[in-house]
Structure formats: C-alpha cells, structure tokens
Deep mutational scan, measured.
Amino acid sequence: MLDDRARMEAAKKEKVEQILAEFQLQEEDLKKVMRRMQKEMDRGLRLETHEEASVKMLPTYVRSTPEGSEVGDFLSLDLGGTNFRVMLVKVGEGEEGQWSVKTKHQMYSIPEDAMTGTAEMLFDYISECISDFLDKHQMKHKKLPLGFTFSFPVRHEDIDKGILLNWTKGFKASGAEGNNVVGLLRDAIKRRGDFEMDVVAMVNDTVATMISCYYEDHQCEVGMIVGTGCNACYMEEMQNVELVEGDEGRMCVNTEWGAFGDSGELDEFLLEYDRLVDESSANPGQQLYEKLIGGKYMGELVRLVLLRLVDENLLFHGEASEQLRTRGAFETRFVSQVESDTGDRKQIYNILSTLGLRPSTTDCDIVRRACESVSTRAAHMCSAGLAGVINRMRESRSEDVMRITVGVDGSVYKLHPSFKERFHASVRRLTPSCEITFIESEEGSGRGAALVSAVACKKACMLGQ
C-alpha cells in the first residue's frame, strides 16, 4: 500500500517536472537572447534605426563620474514606483581627507489618484512632500541643488532636461508624456511658492545606482535594477552614441532593455503563462523582457503555473481556492519566502493557508518547484541581457580580458534567497573573457542622484555659470 502511494507521488512529481521543464533555458538559448539583445542595442544607438529599435539606448548626458572633490548639501528625489523618497545628502571631506556622503531620508507613498490623475496632481503632491521634508529638517530658507531620480523612459536633451516617452509600472498621470519632466517639477514648486529649489540633474535609477557604486569602486561602469521592473545602464564610447554629437570619451546610456521583445525577438521563448500575464497587464505587448524578470510579474506567473497544475490534477487534489483564482493573489514576496523555507515546509504551508488552501507535504514541495522554475528562468533571462552589455563593452574597448564592476539594486536581487547566485553564475558562463565584480548599492537611487548633481554643480562652477 505504502509502495503504491510512494509510486503515485513519484509519478505525480515526474509529471510536474515535465510541465515545469518549459521554463528551462539551455545555454544556447541564452546565447541567442544575448546576441539578439546586442543587435537591438546597436539599432538603438544608431541614428537611422533608433526610432524602430525596441531597446532605445537613451543617452543620459552623464559623462563624468564623481571624483571626490564636490562638497555641499544636496536634496535628492526618487520616483520610480508607488513609494517616493526625499533625501538630504551631505557631501563633504571625511576623516583623513576621505570623501564622505551622509544621508537623511523619508519615504512617502503615492496615492492612487496622483498616479493615475493628471501630471499637475502628481507633481503638486511631490512638491508637497518636499515642503514637508524641508519643514522637518528646518531647511526651507536654503535654496538647495536638487537631483531627481526618475525611473521611467526619458529622452534627455541635457542633464536637466528630459522628455517622458511613456509611463510604465502602473503610472498613468495624463499630460506628462511628451513633456519635460524637470519643467513639470519646477512648475509645481513655483505653484507652491513656499520654498526654492535648483533642479540641476535628472537621472534614471540605473544611472543613480551606477554612480553610487562608483563611489565604492571606481571600476563600476554598469548599473542595473532588478526590482519591480528590470533595466540597466553602462558607459558607452561616445563615438557609438549617434544621437549625441561628439566622439570623445564616454557617456552613460540608459538601455531601457525592459522593452526588448516588443518587436518579436522573444516570441519563441514566451510561454502561455507569459501571454496571460501580458494580456492582463496595463501595457499589453510592451516591456516583454521586463515581464519575464521583474517583481511586478513574478508572483503572478507562479500563480498561473499553480492553476495549470491544479487543472492537471497534480496539486491540491485538483481544487483551487477562490483566493488562488484571484489575479495578483500570489505576491512576489511569497516566491522569495517559499524558496527561503528551511525544509520543514512550515513557511510554505503558512503562505498557502493564507490563500485558503490546506496543502499536503507533496503540495508544498511542488509549489516550491514552481517558484524555483519561474525565478530561475528570470535570473537566466536577466543574465543574457547583462552578458550582452558586458561583452559589447569588452569588444568596443578591444580588451582581451576586461575587469568590470556592476552596481545592482532592486528588491528581487536583494531579497530573493537564490536569485543573485543563479544570476551571477549564468552571467559568468556567458562572459568567459571578463572578470566581473557585483556590488549592491546602498540607498543607491538617492545618493547617486545627489552625486550626479554634485558633478553638475562642479561643472557649472568651472564653466562660470
């Protein structure tokens, strides 16, 4: 009897593995994704193909990295998701002549009506938060230079001027797309009239992360975010950046690689679950690469896999709870928690219980395998993109072996128990001629924006502006 049951459990697990095998990517698959990513990057950089390229390769006008001589107080704003952060950054000489960066910050959550109302409502709310922060720190009387981390696709015309191309991540505030974001912020500050600010720089969160990590390690020339969304930036040779005049030196390019796949480059790798996630998203047909990796989508992918296993009578005796059938019910943090389970399955059992399920031991094991399959594919897909960037940098610099540091931020990278190990191992397999160091950014977005502002202020002083 026991043997029969054991055989049935083994057969069930084997069927589960057959279904989950769809998520496995072979090294040849990853090399294919990497080569296609490089081709799209090239198209994004070139003037004649930029418009139709899915990977936009947006110039950021960040050319210099901090040298350690900029000092002063800077205000930093960070808008990239449902939370908005205001930070005071003091850049100065530390002990023994070292450079020191001290920060104080406060988080504000953005109400739904500000995210989806008008641009005026959104930026009025942001300036209200700045006003509140300055009151708390008794700094209303000071006109501070301000660095703005704005983590949406922007076409820069200068370091302090950028046109919002399109909202992502659930934002829909009308009247912002096609307009200068810094102008919208300046107008809102003017409307309030109770404080003055000098907006000197606007950067993407990947750029802010790279600059913040450069402060720790001067070989950091790539910034990457794996959180709600997924994106990367890197220092490109100016001669390859056709959208900006000049051939000397390097400029940081914001790849906006989340949109890779929007022209069909990933079609052969998309599964039924991916198509369902895409169809029910706020932007169907867009940001397809990001939807395979980002935390906004990972939990939902797992939920759809679990429903398939229920329908195949391989999980929960073929019956799903009402909660499990509800879109968004299986949160991405559950994926991390399930994979963090120590082996007694308590954590998995508790999560499934909150979803109205009474799982068996085998159910718990199957749910864990589903989570591992989805998150491992995410790590491997992400590795193909980064390997594409790094191999490109090595080739354009004609280096036999390139040493490089990548600064990384984002909740999936930082909080998932195995993502970074799987990701690092896969990147290294795909970049055999590179020695890569990964560092995690601390308060990256805010500190990085302030350091970019410090560079901009120093330049302005040198130019006598």
Rank of each mutant, 00 (worst) to 15 (best):
S433P: 15
C371H: 02
I293R: 00
E265W: 04
E14C: 11
K13I: 12
G385L: 02
D274I: 00
A6M: 12
F150T: 02
R275Q: 15
S280T: 09
E242V: 07
E265A: 10
S441D: 10
M210S: 02
E40A: 13
L430D: 06
G246Q: 10
L451D: 00
T118L: 03
Q18Y: 13
E242H: 05
L304A: 12
G343S: 10
V406L: 04
Y273E: 07
E279W: 13
I159L: 11
E14Y: 14
M115I: 13
R46I: 09
R429M: 10
Q138C: 02
L463K: 11
Y108T: 02
T326K: 13
M381G: 05
V277S: 07
T168Q: 03
C434I: 08
K56C: 06
L88D: 03
A11S: 13
F419V: 02
N166T: 10
L276K: 06
G295A: 03
V154K: 01
S280Q: 10
Y215Q: 01
E52T: 10
G44Y: 02
K90H: 15
L75Q: 02
E70H: 06
N313P: 08
S426R: 09
S360W: 07
E221R: 10
Y125M: 01
R397V: 06
I348M: 12
L77A: 05
S398T: 09
K414I: 14
S54E: 08
R368W: 14
G117D: 06
E96W: 06
L266R: 03
V203G: 01
E236Y: 00
A11L: 10
E395L: 12
S280N: 14
A10K: 09
E22W: 11
E312L: 13
R369W: 10
F316D: 08
S64K: 08
Q347N: 11
N166G: 07
G97V: 12
D73V: 05
R429K: 11
R36Q: 10
Y289D: 05
R429H: 13
L463I: 10
D160L: 03
P59Q: 03
I110G: 05
R250M: 14
A384H: 02
E248K: 08
P359S: 10
R369C: 11
V412I: 04
A10M: 10
V101E: 07
C233F: 03
S441F: 00
G299K: 09
C252F: 00
I348C: 13
K143A: 03
A450C: 00
V200I: 06
V203A: 01
E177R: 03
A387K: 03
A6G: 12
F74T: 07
E290S: 04
L307N: 14
M139P: 07
Q465Y: 11
K420A: 12
M197S: 11
C220P: 04
L184P: 00
D205E: 00
S353N: 13
A456P: 13
D262M: 14
D29P: 08
D274G: 04
E440W: 13
K136C: 07
D365S: 09
Q219R: 14
L185R: 00
N391H: 12
I163E: 01
N83F: 03
E300R: 04
